[in-house]
Design a protein around this nucleic acid. Structure first.
Lengths: 251, 251
DNA sequence: ACCTGAACACCGTTCAAGT
DNA sequence: ACCTGAACACCGTTCAAGT
C-alpha cells in the first residue's frame, strides 16, 4: 500500500513469543519514563535504519526513549542481544508481510516468494548481515521463518536431510547477498551526490585500467556489471538454487 | 601437509598488488621498531583467529608488533580498512591454496573446488563475514578470486550476464554460510567443555518442547539437525546451486 | 619517511541509589 | 519492579614531538 522503497517497513512483528518483561504499567508514572521490550527494540531498529550500525548507541537509544542509559539493561542484557533482537524484529516484519503465502500449488514458487520478501527486508539494512539466526532463544521469528520455508519443502518428495539442507542453503544465500553489499555504488552515489552515470563509467574505466590478462573475466563482464540491478541479480541466483532443488525433487 | 584443522593456514597471500608502504628498511633501526603492511595485517589476522573480533584492538596489535598505537595508522587509515585487508589476506591464502586448479575438464567442478576452498578458509573465522568484497581498491585478492571463478564460467555456453549472476551467487552463498554460524554448537561445546552428545540431546529436547503445530518442520528435521555436519551441508547447498547452473548451461 | 605515546572523545557496562 | 546517572574500564583516532 505504501510506496516507501527506503526500508519498506513491515517491521512490526507478530506476537513475540518470548517472555515479555515490562508490561503496560502506565498509571502513576510521572517523570520517570517507562519503556517496554518492544519500544526498545523498535527504536533500536529505527536508529539503525537512519544512521547505520554506528548510530546505535546506548546513549542515543536512551535519549530517544527519553530515559537513562541504565534502563535499557532491564530489557536487554548486552548490545549483542539488542542487535539480535533487532534482526529478529525485522524478520518479524517479513513474517507478517508473507502471511498470505503457503496456499499455492507449487511449493518451490512459495519458497521463492518467501526468499524474495526476506531479501527485500535486508536491502538498505547492511547492519543485520551477521545477526540472523544467532541465538535460537531470542530469535523466535527466525525460527518461525525457517519453519515456514521448511514447511513448503515438506510437500516435495525429499528426504528430511535434503529438506534441511535446502532451507539452510536458501537462508544462507539470502544472508550472503545481504552481506555482500559493497561492490555496489558507494553512499555518495546512492545519495545522489554523485550521478550514477559517472560512477558507472568510472567503474568501467577502472576495470579497463587493470591488466586484461590478469582479470579477463572482469573485462568480460564490465558492461554487465555497470548495468546490473541488484534485485534482479538476487533473483537470478535464487533461481539457480531453486532449479537445482526442483531437479532434486523430481519436479 | 599440515594437519591443523583449526584455522588451516594457507593465509599468506600471493604478491600484494597494492602499493606497499613500509619497505624493508632494516639497518640502523635501534630501539624504534619497524613494521610493514604485511606484518600489520598478518598479526591482525592472528589476533582475530585467536580471540575473535573483540581481540583485535589497536593497542593489542601494537603491543604484538612491539610498537606504539600510532604507528599502525601509517599503514592503515582506520580499523575498517584493517579488517578489509585482513579479510583480503585470508582470501589470498585461498588463492595460493587453489593455484593448481583451472586445468580440469569440467568448469563447474572447478568452481566447486574453488568454492569449497573458500569455505574452508571461512570456517572458524566468524569475524570475516561481512568484510569480503567491500572496497575493490584494497581487496585485490577478492577481485582475483572473483575473476578466477568467472574464468571457469567463460568456458560454458552462457551470456556474460548469466556468468556474472552465477559468480555473484556462488560468492554470496559462501559468505552467507560463513555468516550463519550460530545455529551451530556454541563455544563451550566446541571447546569440549560440554560434550557434544549433551548439546545435541539438549537441542533435540528444546525442539520437542516447542509446539509441534507451530513448528512442524523443526520437529521434522530435529534428528537430522542434531546429526548434521557443517561442511557436508555446505556442499549440499553448493551442489544445488551448481546443478541449477549446469542446467542453465545445457551441461 | 616512519615511529611514539599522551590526550581526546566516546563507548558498553555496572551499580548504588532512588521510586 | 523498574528507572537513573555517575563512574569505570576500554576503545579508535589524532597529533605534536621525536628520529
Amino acid at each position: 500500500m505504501t510506496t516507501d522503497d527506503e526500508v519498506s517497513d513491515a517491521s512490526r512483528g507478530p506476537a513475540d513469543l518470548v517472555r515479555r518483561r515490562g508490561g503496560g504499567r502506565k498509571s502513576s508514572g510521572r517523570q520517570r519514563s517507562s519503556h517496554s521490550l518492544d519500544a526498545v527494540v523498535s527504536e533500536a531498529v529505527a536508529l539503525l535504519d537512519e544512521g547505520g550500525e554506528a548510530a546505535l548507541t546506548f546513549r542515543a537509544l536512551a535519549a530517544r526513549l527519553g530515559g537513562g542509559v541504565g534502563s535499557i539493561y532491564w530489557y536487554v542484557s548486552s548490545k549483542d542481544e539488542l542487535l539480535e533482537r533487532a534482526a529478529d524484529h525485522v524478520l518479524g516484519g517479513v513474517l507478517t508481510a508473507t502471511a498470505h503465502l503457503g496456499q499455492g500449488e507449487d511449493p518451490i514458487a512459495e519458497v521463492r516468494e518467501l526468499a524474495i520478501a526476506f531479501y527485500a527486508a535486508t536491502v538498505n539494512r547492511p547492519w543485520l548481515g551477521a545477526y540472523f539466526l544467532q541465538d535460537t532463544g531470542t530469535q523466535v521469528n527466525g525460527l518461525m521463518f525457517f519453519d515456514r520455508v521448511g514447511r513448503e519443502l515438506m510437500r516435495l518428495d525429499l528426504t528430511p536431510r535434503q529438506r534441511l539442507d535446502a532451507v539452510s542453503a536458501v537462508m544462507a544465500y539470502v544472508v550472503g547477498v545481504a552481506a555482500d553489499r559493497g561492490q555496489d555504488p558507494p553512499p555518495e552515489v546512492r545519495d545522489g551526490r554523485v550521478p550514477v552515470d559517472e560512477f558507472v563509467s568510472e567503474f568501467r574505466a577502472s576495470i579497463r585500467a587493470m591488466d586484461s590478462r590478469a582479470f579477463p573475466f572482469l573485462h568480460h563482464i564490465a558492461d554487465e556489471f555497470a548495468a546490473h540491478d541488484d534485485a534482479e541479480q538476487f533473483r537470478a541466483g535464487l533461481d539457480l538454487l531453486l532449479a537445482g532443488l526442483r531437479l532434486q525433487s523430481g519436479r
